[in-house]
C-alpha cells in the first residue's frame, strides 16, 4: 500500500494544571525528551524513536484536556489537495503561517463535528536527536522510564461522531477498522486508521463536545507494559486499569492518568490493517470484552472520566 495523503498522528497539545508535575510525568516516567520551551511557557517533547521535531506539546492552563491534535501529510501538494477537499465539503479551514509553531511549516486547522480542533501539516524539521540512520544503533542512549517509542493515537469523546467519521473517511481518506454498534445500528465507537495501524484516531459518542479520553504511547512489548506497571506502582501514579488487553485492536495496555487528570495509555501490539480489510464490528452486549478483553466488563471510569 502506498500511503500518499495523511500519514500519521503528528502532535497533540495537552493542557496541564502544573507544568513541573507534568514534566516529571511525561519526561521522567513516560520517558519523553524535552525538545524546546517557548516564551509562552509551552513545552515541546518527543519520544526517542520519533524522527520529527516534536509530538507532545504541554500548555499550562486552568483546565486539563486537549487543545488540538495534528496529522502529518505526505507533501505540501497533498496538503493543498486536502485543503481543497475540506473546503469543497464545506469545512471552514484556518490556514496558519509557517513558523507559528516551532519547527513546523504551514498548518491547516479545522473543527470536527465533535468539537475537537484538528490540524494538518506536511513540513516539520527533523529532531536534532532522532533515530540513527547510518549503521543505526537502537538508540543514542538507553531510554528512560516507560521507554515510550512514539505518540501513537488519541481516543476522543464527542457528540457527532457520525459527522466526524464522515469527515475523516470521505474527505481525509481514513478507513474504519473497527466499531461498536448498538442493536438499533447506532455507532457508539469508531476506530479510524490513515495507514496500516489498527487505529490512529478513535471516537466515542458522548453528550458533550471536545473531550479527551486518552493520549496513547507505543511501547515495544508486553514486557515493557509490565515494566511501565512497575513504574506506576513505584511512584504511586494514578492507574485507571491494566495491565490488560483490548479486544478492539488487540493492544496490550494500561490506562493511567497524568498529574492533571488527563488519561494516558501505554500499549504494545495490535494488528496490521490493510485498506481492503472488512470492518470488525462489536455489538454493545459484548462491549466489555471489546474494550477490556480480560476483565470482560467496562469499568465505571471508561464512560465517565474524561477531560
Amino acid at each position: 500500500m502506498a500511503i500518499s495523503g495523511v500519514l500519521r498522528p503528528g502532535y497533540v497539545q495537552v493542557r496541564v494544571l502544573d507544568m513541573a508535575a507534568a514534566l516529571e510525568h511525561y519526561r521522567d516516567r513516560i520517558g519523553l525528551d524535552v525538545v524546546t520551551t517557548t516564551n509562552d511557557g509551552r513545552v515541546f517533547l518527543k519520544a526517542y524513536d520519533e524522527f520529527d521535531h516534536h509530538s507532545i506539546i504541554l500548555r499550562e492552563a486552568d483546565e486539563p484536556g486537549m487543545d488540538f491534535m495534528a496529522f502529518k501529510v505526505m507533501s505540501e501538494g497533498a496538503l493543498d489537495e486536502l485543503h481543497e477537499k475540506l473546503l469543497a465539503a464545506g469545512v471552514p479551514v484556518e490556514e496558519i503561517e509557517p513558523g507559528d509553531m516551532p519547527a513546523v511549516g504551514r498548518r491547516l486547522a479545522f473543527e470536527a463535528p465533535t468539537g475537537h480542533r484538528f490540524e494538518l501539516f506536511a513540513t516539520i524539521d527533523l529532531a536534532q536527536i532522532g533515530p540513527m540512520v547510518n549503521n543505526p544503533e537502537l538508540w543514542h542512549a538507553e531510554p528512560r522510564g516507560m521507554r515510550a517509542l512514539r505518540f501513537d493515537h488519541c481516543l476522543l469523546y464527542g457528540d457527532d461522531i457520525d459527522g466526524a467519521k464522515a469527515l475523516f473517511v470521505d474527505v481525509l481518506g481514513f478507513s474504519v477498522t473497527e466499531q461498536v454498534v448498538t442493536p438499533d445500528h447506532t455507532v457508539i465507537a469508531t476506530f479510524l486508521s490513515c495507514g496500516m495501524k489498527a487505529h490512529d484516531l478513535a471516537l466515542v459518542r458522548h453528550e458533550g463536545k471536545g473531550k479527551l479520553h486518552h493520549v496513547s504511547f507505543l511501547l515495544e512489548s508486553w514486557h515493557d507494559v509490565g515494566h511501565a506497571a512497575d513504574i506506576m506502582s513505584r511512584y504511586n501514579m494514578s492507574v485507571d486499569i491494566g495491565p490488560t488487553r483490548h479486544g478492539i485492536t488487540r493492544g496490550q495496555t494500561i490506562y493511567f492518568f497524568d498529574p492533571s487528570g488527563n488519561r494516558n495509555e501505554v500499549f504494545a501490539g495490535g494488528y496490521t490493517f490493510y485498506p481492503d480489510h472488512p470492518v470488525r464490528t462489536w455489538s454493545t452486549d459484548e462491549v466489555g470484552k471489546a474494550i477490556f478483553y480480560y476483565e470482560r466488563a467496562l469499568n465505571d471510569r471508561f464512560m465517565t472520566v474524561v477531560t
Binding site: 497524568d258 498529574p259 492533571s260 488527563n262 472520566v305
Partner: peptide
C-alpha cells in the same frame, strides 16, 4: 475518577473543618 484534579467525579462540599486544596 482520575485522582488528579481533572475529571470532577469526586466533587464534594466540605461542611465542617479546614483544608488546603491542590490544583
Amino acid at each position: 475518577g482520575c485522582r488528579n484534579g481533572g475529571c470532577g467525579l469526586c466533587l464534594v462540599r466540605v461542611t465542617q473543618g479546614a483544608f488546603k486544596a491542590g490544583p
